[in-house]
Amino acid sequence: MRVIEEISFPGFKLSILAMNQKFILKFEKGNLEQTYKVAEMDLIFGLEDVKKMLNETFLTTVMERFKQMNNDFADQLEQL
């Protein structure tokens, strides 16, 4: 697995990796992470297409999912 690029967004970090003919989008926020895999053969322009995926709608969804993940995790910790 090799890191292609790292991008910081307000609230989280994105690493774009390449492995086994796939691009991996790894979003990290604190102790949480989300990973999305895209097959290179599904893209016409490779990394350029991956970057087009990073629009405001998708990034907002990622942030909302982090909020939900954090709430779910905090709820589980409270039950210990």
Rank of each mutant, 00 (worst) to 15 (best):
M53N: 10
T35S: 12
F73C: 07
K37M: 13
K26W: 08
L59V: 15
I44S: 07
D72H: 07
M1S: 14
I7C: 04
A39P: 10
F12E: 00
R65K: 13
L47N: 14
V50K: 14
L17Q: 03
F9Q: 08
P10A: 03
E64N: 13
L43Y: 09
E56W: 12
G11M: 05
F23G: 00
E64M: 01
K37L: 15
E40Y: 10
F66G: 00
Q34F: 08
G46N: 14
M19N: 02
L59Q: 05
D72R: 06
E56M: 13
L54D: 01
N70V: 01
E28D: 02
K26I: 03
E33N: 14
N31P: 03
I7N: 06
A18E: 02
S8H: 04
R65P: 09
Q68L: 11
F9T: 02
L77D: 01
F12N: 00
Q68P: 00
M69A: 09
D42V: 08
L47K: 15
I7V: 12
Q34T: 02
V38I: 15
P10S: 12
D49E: 12
I44R: 06
S8K: 09
E40C: 05
N31R: 04
F58L: 15
G11P: 10
M63N: 08
L25C: 04
L17E: 14
M41A: 10
K29C: 09
